[in-house]
Design a protein around this nucleic acid. Structure first.
Length: 427
DNA sequence: GCGATCAGTT
DNA sequence: CACAACTGATCGC
């Protein structure tokens, strides 16, 4: 607890500088309007949205980091008491408005914390982020990559958001007389709504608090709170249900579109035995869904589910890792029923592991990945957070030379026989 | 009233 | 059933 210098998306006491990647609730747990633990760094857009999420927050504590610019911090090394220079750069994470990754450089080396991110080729955002990352790294190696490993499994394959958006428009067009309900959260998926609005040349209804956020984001023309102006309404996801749709249909013909859900996992790699027995590098890693076949699924008489994701799919994670070639990777999300250490799949792409893997493969071709995983677990200096009571949800803390990041986790540690390389939760 | 945690929902 | 993101109930202060 006392050795931390920097925290990312983690809000317990003991750090000298706190970094927020984005404003979704699962990354702000512990933050509140009464925050008084010192400066909090975030992107300009996140700072702008901040008062909506935390009214009364002392905004003088916010430190805006402009995307692509290095910022220097002078921190105190807890052990020696001497000052240590740390540089940090924020890079667009393409997850939701304001979301960023943080690249840190200091005496400890180089580390990147992705927060939640999407690494898709479509659109120019990824090219810009790519250039920024490579420029920032130059020839230096990335020592640790703290990775959004939400969908770090080959069974997760889904299309670009633009393609998914096109599918939503197709669904709407094929129901010209229907009202349309789209389930969204309080932040995120704005591009989808804009795409629909532009493609159909109609406004989209949103609830008042959501309109306020959209206005802060600079979208003034495409949204309204007047029901009479449009047949397309975006509603809070928690108010989107079979019952809601059935109720609405007793008034007027209405369909619901849910841009998320997980129908993607259905097809690929059902056979777990094959998955676990296979050599990571043998897995077919390129995405199966290049074409616009029926990616949208009819989930119910009135409900369609479209795989619109703000997290990277497996092949995107792979490309990201191939680009950066980090020495080590840590997943920031552990949801144990499906959690697999990123190194299970990508250890062979990592800096030192790469050499290790090549030699190892030559010597004994049959060897599984257990040794690699074992090495992984040993290499991290980790300690558990202050013995939390709950067993379902827990945020753990990881120490790496004084830098602490959160491990956002839903610890549903059921059976499933999934390999869990990390054992730091058990103390 | 506030913050943290837990259960439950799409 | 997988997930992320969220609401609402409850508990302790």
């Amino acid at each position: 607890m006392e050795s931390g210098m920097i925290s990312v998306d983690k809000w317990s006491s003991g750090s000298q500088a706190y970094f927020l990647t984005h404003l979704h609730a699962d990354h702000t747990a512990g933050l509140s309007s009464t925050w008084n633990r010192g400066p909090l760094f975030c992107s300009r857009l996140t700072a702008k949205l901040f008062p909506c999420k935390f009214p009364g927050f002392d905004l003088s504590l916010l430190r805006v980091l402009d995307i692509g610019c290095w910022h220097s911090l002078s921190l105190i090394t807890p052990s020696s008491g001497s000052t240590a220079a740390v540089s940090v750069k924020a890079i667009d994470a393409q997850h939701c408005p304001g979301s960023v990754m943080y690249l840190f450089r200091g005496e400890f080396g180089c580390m990147l914390f992705t927060g939640d991110f999407r690494w898709e080729k479509i659109g120019n955002g990824m090219e810009i982020a790519r250039t920024m990352l490579l420029d920032a790294l130059k020839n230096e190696t990335l020592d640790i990559l703290y990775l959004d490993n939400t969908y770090c499994n080959p069974r997760y394959s889904f299309p670009s958001r633009e393609l998914a958006a096109r599918q939503v428009v197709d669904i709407i067009n094929s129901h010209p007389k229907h009202d349309i309900i789209i389930g969204i959260d309080s932040l995120g998926k704005e591009d989808l709504l804009l795409y629909i609005s532009r493609a159909l040349n109609i406004k989209i209804w949103v609830w008042p608090e959501r309109l306020q956020i959209l206005h802060l984001l600079g979208f003034h023309d495409h949204f309204t709170t007047q029901t009479s102006l449009t047949r397309v309404r975006a509603v809070p996801r928690y108010s989107f249900s079979v019952e809601t749709l059935e109720g609405l249909n007793s008034l007027r013909p209405t369909i619901g579109v849910m841009p998320s859900g997980l129908p993607w996992a259905e097809k690929a790699l059902k056979r777990k035995g094959t998955l676990f027995g296979s050599f990571p590098s043998d897995i077919k890693m390129h995405d199966l869904s290049g074409d616009s076949k029926n990616i949208a699924r009819r989930y119910h008489e009135y409900i369609y589910v479209v795989p619109y994701s703000d997290h990277s799919c497996f092949s995107e994670i792979q490309e990201f890792i191939e680009l950066l070639r980090p020495i080590n990777i840590k997943g920031i999300v552990s949801s144990s029923s499906s959690y697999i250490d990123p190194c299970y799949y990508f250890g062979h792409l990592c800096g030192t592991k790469q050499a290790y893997w090549r030699i190892h493969r030559k010597v004994e071709n049959e060897e599984g990945i257990d040794r690699v995983e074992a090495d992984e677990t040993k290499s991290a200096e980790e300690n558990t957070a202050s013995s939390v009571a709950g067993r379902k949800r827990k945020i753990d803390q990881v120490d790496f030379l004084g830098i602490r990041v959160s491990r956002v986790s839903l610890l549903r540690r059921l059976s499933h026989g999934v390999k869990i390389a990390h054992n730091e939760y058990l103390s």
